[in-house]
């Protein structure tokens, strides 16, 4: 998902820890000043931090098309969507900061590779139809994960998710709207829409993380209610919802083995190429280097602004004090 393969620290079985687990089991929210196990705190910093980084890096593939949107209206909509992603990143950084890490620290960890962002944003956006596919599939997959996270045990994270979910539906619908337009357009436009679906289908399935049998950290995170569903549960839900939408568009999911399984009441589908997923997470995705370089440039180029505004603020304070 936006947070993939988050390693969870093992929990010590102390009395405090059992009392903590009992609070979570009773559905209580954990707040920043409450006692919490170190493992819970560290795992959440990794998870929320990665989620925040994904929102920020996620602006880049879409930012790529702002200047080339086909109409002024589409440009304004895309701009608003990308601005929302910045907002989502900020909500999440603030939630992570309540756990005792600073935003600058997290940014540095992203830039030097100690923290990750979602694999999906290491793929390029080659045509305008990709803006449709990203909104429809990528934001669709994100919603699948974020809706249950509104009930997560950590209060500030749950509240950030509530804000994010309120805005996310706009993102998916604007994407589907682009896909509808393209799919009903000229043969060339429809072909472009199909091509976008072909390229984004498996990377979207990868967003949910590895199969449950290979997902080693799930059990602890689920006990702590910082992960609400297994990877395979959410992936299946996504496939079941998305296949009929593709049919409506008249587009074909690029999976010859995709078929409805009457017995299970779900679609059977092919797993993505997991070796590709692990490779992308390691930083070998088609755009991995470019994404971090772009973020690093923004961070470095913005340094003088951050410093100047701080200096101005200090100067104003001394001025007021002198008066």
């Amino acid at each position: 998902m936006y947070a993939q393969m988050v390693t969870s620290d093992p929990r010590d079985e102390t009395v405090e820890d059992q009392a903590f687990q009992a609070r979570i089991d009773a559905g209580e929210k954990i707040e920043p000043r409450d006692w919490m196990p170190e493992g819970y705190r560290k795992t959440l910093i990794r998870q929320i931090g990665q989620h925040a980084h994904s929102e920020i890096v996620g602006q880049l593939p879409e930012g790529n098309w702002i200047t080339r949107a086909p109409t002024l209206e589409r440009k304004a909509i895309l701009l608003a969507k990308v601005q929302d992603e910045a907002g989502h990143g900020l909500y999440l950084y603030c939630a992570a900061e309540t756990l005792g890490v600073s935003r600058d620290e997290m940014t540095e960890m992203l830039l030097d590779g100690r923290m990750k962002y979602s694999s999906i944003f290491s793929y390029p956006t080659l045509t305008w139809a990709d803006m449709g596919a990203v909104g429809w599939l990528v934001d669709g997959a994100a919603i699948m994960n974020q809706v249950p996270l509104q009930r997560t045990s950590y209060g500030p994270y749950a509240r950030a998710m509530i804000r994010v979910c309120k805005e996310e539906s706009f993102h998916q619908r604007q994407g589907f709207d682009i896909m509808m337009k393209m799919a009903k357009g000229t043969p060339a436009q429809k072909k472009m829409a199909q091509d976008a679906l072909n390229r984004f289908w498996y990377p979207s399935l990868m967003m949910f993380g590895p199969s449950d049998k290979d997902s080693v950290h799930s059990a602890q995170s689920m006990a702590w209610k910082i992960k609400m569903n297994t990877n395979d549960e959410l992936r299946q839900k996504f496939v079941d919802l998305t296949v009929p939408q593709a049919e409506y568009l008249g587009l074909t999911i690029p999976d010859p083995d995709l078929k409805w399984n009457e017995e299970r009441g779900h679609y059977d589908y092919s797993e993505p190429d997991w070796s590709e997923f692990y490779d992308v997470l390691k930083g070998n995705g088609p755009c991995s280097v470019d994404r971090i370089e772009t973020r690093k440039k923004a961070w470095d180029d913005g340094a003088w602004v951050r410093e100047a505004l701080m200096a101005h603020s200090e100067k104003q304070k001394t001025k007021v004090a002198a008066e």
């Binding site: 601005q83 907002g87 900020l90 603030c94 900061e97 951050r306 505004l309």
Partner: peptide
């Protein structure tokens, strides 16, 4: 209370709050 943000001073904090 809706959340928090970083800003160099109160004036900028209000501007950022409006955007965020």
């Amino acid at each position: 209370h809706v959340g928090s943000l970083h800003a160099p001073d109160a004036e900028m904090a209000i501007k950022h709050a409006r955007d965020v």
